[in-house]
Design a protein around this nucleic acid. Structure first.
Lengths: 115, 115
DNA sequence: TGCGCAAATCGCCATATAGTGATATAGATA
DNA sequence: TATCTATATCACTATATGGCGATTTGCGCA
């Protein structure tokens, strides 16, 4: 028999897995990085396009992209002077979807309280 | 027609939604809190059980549970002197699953490089 | 070789927070 | 009331990091 598909039926994660998960969540924990990822969702963007789109300073955009990249959430490709950044791991999109679903459920529940 | 189910087809998240998502990810970004959540996955636990299971100091367990609770990821119920904590939002479990899937895919890809 | 532009890096400061020991609070029990 | 236990909170330190201006690096091109 296959294990039940509930939390109780799952194997606990190893310490190393938990550490890596914490790293991923930590990478996504900053609004500026989520903004950058959101701008990358429709497709690749250069650093200057991201600066323009987010209003962040160039130094900061580069820094946050570096953090996203060292955590393998984005990748880049050079084109002359330009660097094209893109989302490297579809996990990012899924994670945001899961969070948003929960937020929507919460909103519905909150609204229900006052009906 | 319904929108495509790709990142490009999704509405961007509002600033407020992004902020809330950052909060959730931030709450999950700490190893100690992930450890606590993992201990809660099979079912409710008291603070002292969590202290015992994780090896963390009692003050720190209470503190981190407080953070999890203020972000609505866990809830608690009093039973005499004891507080029983439990996971309040199944999102937590889903998020960990999504991250782990990605880690597994990465591991497979890494292994493939050296075959 | 030198110039100009895009991006990355450096040094710095300000802030946030994990973890700690000590203490306070709240419920049970006598 | 006094006291014991479980949990929460306080005050503090140490560390990590976001954001910034200044500078450097890497590439294309004259």
């Amino acid at each position: 028999m296959s294990p039940k598909s509930t939390a109780a039926g799952k194997q606990p994660l190893s310490h190393v897995q938990l550490e890596r998960a914490a790293d991923v969540f930590s990478t996504l924990s900053e609004l500026s990085r989520l903004q950058l990822l959101q701008e990358l969702m429709p497709g690749p963007r250069t650093v200057s396009e991201l600066v323009e789109a987010t209003g962040m300073k160039q130094a900061n955009v580069s820094k946050q992209l570096g953090i996203l990249r060292s955590n393998r959430l984005v990748e880049r490709e050079r084109d002359g002077n330009f660097m094209h950044y893109s989302i490297a791991d579809p996990m990012v999109v899924h994670l945001c979807e899961v969070v948003c679903e929960s937020l929507r459920r919460q909103a519905v529940r909150e609204a229900g309280k006052y009906v």
